[in-house]
Measured scan of single mutants.
Amino acid sequence: WVPTKREEKYGVAFYNYDARGADELSLQIGDTVHILETYEGWYRGYTLRKKSKKGIFPASYIHLKE
C-alpha cells in the first residue's frame, strides 16, 4: 500500500459496491470517500458519512475530485 500523494484526496462513488470481506468498504452511489492509500487498482479509506469504518474498495468505482 502506498500513501496518497496529496494530503486531502477525495472521490465520489459512481457505482454501488458491496463489501465481500471484513477488510472491504461498502459504497453507495454518491458517497464521498477520503482516500488514504492506493494499491494495484484499489483504494483504502473511509466514507464521510461513516468515518469510523475504514476499508478497501475498487478504484474503478470512484471519480476523483480535483
Rank of each mutant, 00 (worst) to 15 (best):
L48H: 10
E66C: 14
S60A: 14
K53L: 11
K51Y: 08
D31R: 02
I56C: 10
G11Y: 04
Q28V: 13
W1F: 08
R44E: 04
L64V: 10
G30P: 00
Y61D: 01
V33D: 00
L27M: 01
L27H: 00
R6I: 11
L36R: 01
H34S: 06
V12E: 05
Y46C: 11
I56S: 04
I35Q: 00
E8Q: 12
N16V: 07
K9E: 09
I56H: 03
T4P: 09
E40K: 12
E7V: 11
I35K: 00
D31L: 06
G55F: 03
W42R: 00
P58K: 03
L64E: 03
K9Q: 13
Q28W: 07
T4V: 14
W1C: 10
K5V: 09
E24I: 04
I35G: 02
Y43C: 06
G41H: 06
G45D: 01
G45I: 05
R20E: 07
K54M: 14
L48W: 07
I35S: 01
N16P: 12
H34M: 13
K65A: 11
D23L: 08
Y10R: 06
A19Q: 02
G30R: 02
Y46H: 14
R49L: 08
T4K: 07
T4I: 10
D18R: 12
L64C: 09
R20L: 08
R44N: 03
P58M: 05
G30Q: 00
K51T: 12
T47E: 07
H34P: 00
K51R: 11
L48N: 09
T4L: 09
V2G: 08
L25C: 05
E66K: 13
I35Y: 02
I29H: 04
E66Y: 13
T32Y: 15
L25R: 01
W42K: 00
D23C: 13
G55Y: 03
E7G: 15
Y39H: 09
A13C: 12
S60Q: 13
Y10C: 14
L64I: 12
D23T: 06
S60D: 09
R44V: 07
K51A: 11
Y61E: 02
A19S: 06
K5F: 09
K5W: 08
Y43T: 00
K54A: 08
E40I: 07
R6N: 12
G11Q: 04
R20W: 06
A22K: 11
Y61W: 04
K5R: 13
T38G: 06
E7Y: 13
R44T: 04
E40F: 08
K65D: 11
Y10H: 10
I29L: 06
G41R: 05
K54H: 12
K9W: 12
A59G: 05
T4M: 10
K54D: 05
Y46P: 01
K50Y: 13
G11L: 10
E24Q: 08
Y10V: 08
P3L: 04
G41Y: 05
R49Q: 11
R6K: 13
V12D: 01
E37Q: 07
K53M: 10
E8Y: 12
T38R: 14
F14S: 08
Y61C: 15
T47Q: 08
E24T: 03
Y10S: 04
T4Q: 10
P3T: 08
R20M: 09
G55K: 03
R20Y: 05
Y39M: 14
T32L: 15
K50I: 10
K54G: 06
G30C: 09
D18H: 13
Y17A: 01
E24V: 03
D31G: 02
Y10F: 11
T47F: 05
N16C: 12
D18K: 13
A19N: 02
I62T: 02
K54F: 12
K53Y: 07
T4W: 12
R20P: 03
P58T: 03
Y15A: 15
F57S: 00
K51C: 15
G55M: 03
V33Q: 00
E66W: 12
W1E: 07
T47N: 15
A59R: 09
E37M: 07
S60F: 07
L48Q: 04
K51D: 08
L27I: 06
L64T: 05
P58D: 02
G41K: 06
K54Q: 11
A19P: 05
D23V: 06
Y39S: 13
S60K: 15
T32D: 06
E40T: 06
S26L: 01
T38S: 13
Y46S: 04
S26K: 03
D23K: 06
N16R: 12
W42E: 00
N16K: 12
Y10M: 07
V33I: 04
K50L: 13
T47H: 10
R49C: 15
A13F: 03
R49T: 12
G21P: 02
R20H: 07
E37R: 04
Y15I: 15
E7T: 13
K5P: 10
K54C: 14
E66D: 12
V12F: 07
Y10I: 11
G21I: 05
E7R: 11
P3K: 06
F14V: 15
Y10E: 06
A22P: 15
Y61N: 06
A13E: 04
E40G: 13
I29W: 05
T38Q: 13
G11A: 02
K9P: 03
G55N: 00
K50T: 11
I62L: 02
F14C: 15
I62A: 01
Y43N: 00
N16S: 11
T38Y: 13
W1N: 07
T38C: 10
V33K: 00
G55T: 03
Y15V: 15
T38P: 01
E66F: 12
S60L: 08
Q28P: 00
E40P: 10
K9N: 06
P3G: 07
L64K: 00
G11W: 06
Y15Q: 15
W1D: 07
I62R: 00
K9T: 10
L27P: 00
Y46N: 05
R44A: 04
F14D: 06
K65N: 11
R6Y: 10
Y15L: 15
K51V: 11
G45S: 05
R6G: 13
F57K: 02
V2C: 12
K50S: 13
Y43L: 03
L27F: 05
G30I: 04
E8V: 10
G30S: 02
S60T: 09
A19E: 03
A19R: 01
K50V: 12
Y61V: 15
W1S: 07
K9V: 10
I56V: 09
R44M: 12
E66M: 13
K5A: 12
L27Y: 01
S60W: 07
I56N: 05
Q28S: 10
W1G: 08
E37H: 07
E24F: 06
A59D: 03
L27G: 01
V12K: 05
Y10G: 02
T32S: 07
S26M: 03
K54V: 15
S60R: 14
A13R: 03
I62Q: 01
I35A: 01
T47S: 10
K51I: 10
N16H: 09
R44L: 13
Y10N: 02
L36P: 00
G21S: 14
K54S: 09
A13D: 01
W1H: 07
V12W: 08
